[in-house]
Design a protein around this nucleic acid. Structure first.
Lengths: 206, 206
DNA sequence: TGTTACTTGTGAACACTTTCGCATAGTTGG
DNA sequence: CCAACTATGCGAAAGTGTTCACAAGTAACA
């Protein structure tokens, strides 16, 4: 518990959390490691092992209480509080991100949306008003943003990254295929849907 | 080489492929394991180990030839041909997916886009014309689609999944948070941007 | 040609992850 | 209250993945 989670465990716990959140919406109060494992595409033993490393959350013969297990995992991942996001790019992808309820459910709040296109500035995406990209750095500092999401056309991605870094951020999520050059202390997580398809398909071909 | 790749290796090779594709666009002809590793967020030894398992692609003292390494990895992942995708949902997320160049670059072709909203049917997304969701099953069979992408509101996701499964598909990419119930032989890959944020953030908190 | 700097490829050690098998505990129904 | 069933938690074994350290090959340049 005082030890740091490994990447694998942290990733799987996040998946379990998503499954639990949805499961609760469907009205179920109890869930077995078997059920979690089916939705998470892992082995049931793996689920039990992951959870038992932090305490005995389950009841033998019954399963896990959805509500309390949810809180337990949130505690382990430190997802109690709210994390503030800045979104750069108010196109289709940006809008999709801004209007998704997923973030809200997991403790993320999109605090501001930016675009370089004057026509988009002042319009609404989700419950935000698009601000001009010139203000990125200043507004990020002002709002205490910890995480930046880049959802702009590939050719503007580097510029967006630099503005966010200027604003004091050190965690960027890049939804473009562009390779971003950033200072060493900044981490870039690249989200590329095609990439996952590529290796997922490998397991079905031949 | 006759052995099957493990998930980890396949995932990393896909990442390297993305890095190489972008690197080539920037005009560079040669790349070192060090450079690949920086963009892919892994250890340089890991990169060399991954690649050397399939042959000696590099030149000592120099690095790897971007063009030929690209083909080699494409060969390993069987990404020569074109894979056909059906997209369900023509909202913001669907449009973002349809207009992204990422898929084209990696051998994916979106063959058809569907929506249940009569107002969207007949309109254009990317270079496709939106078709009515009623036709999903029939059109999937007709077009030989292998992979379905679900980008609809959460409450319609299960319906979309069923239509795609009816159309003979067994690989679904689910961009909603909904837990999909599908036959055993169907694999669901859930893509949840918030999930990755969740566990990425863990490593910065505390 | 000799020297220096660079970078791959890999043996070996280490560390981590996954899975099996089963004892243990809770639940249900007669 | 007992028997049958279900599902967790965990020791131990097996299986993978990662990293170190360095020999060997390449290039550039004086």
């Amino acid at each position: 518990m005082t030890d740091r989670l490994t990447l694998g465990v942290a990733a799987r716990l996040s998946t379990y959390l998503r499954v639990l959140t949805q499961y609760r919406k469907q009205g179920s109060e109890s869930i077995s490691s078997q059920e979690i494992s089916e939705y998470a595409n892992v082995n049931p033993t793996q689920v039990r092992r992951d959870l038992s490393a932090f305490g005995k959350f389950g009841k033998r013969g019954v399963g896990y209480d959805v509500k309390s297990l949810t809180s337990q995992i949130q505690g382990i991942l430190h997802t109690g509080g709210t994390h503030t996001i800045a979104l750069v790019g108010a196109g289709h992808l940006g809008s999709a991100i801004a209007t998704s309820s997923i973030f809200k459910e997991h403790g993320f709040r999109i605090a501001a949306a930016f675009d370089i296109d004057e026509d988009k500035v002042g319009t609404a995406v989700g419950d935000l008003t698009v601000e001009h990209a010139d203000g990125i750095s200043a507004r990020c500092r002002e709002l205490g943003v910890v995480l930046g999401v880049i959802a702009v056309p590939p050719e503007s991605a580097q510029m967006a990254a630099e503005a966010l870094v200027d604003g004091g951020l050190s965690i960027l999520f890049n939804y473009t295929e562009t390779l971003l050059d950033v200072p060493e202390d900044v981490t870039v997580h690249t989200i590329n849907p095609a990439e996952e398809m590529l290796y997922a398909l490998y397991f079905y071909l031949t």
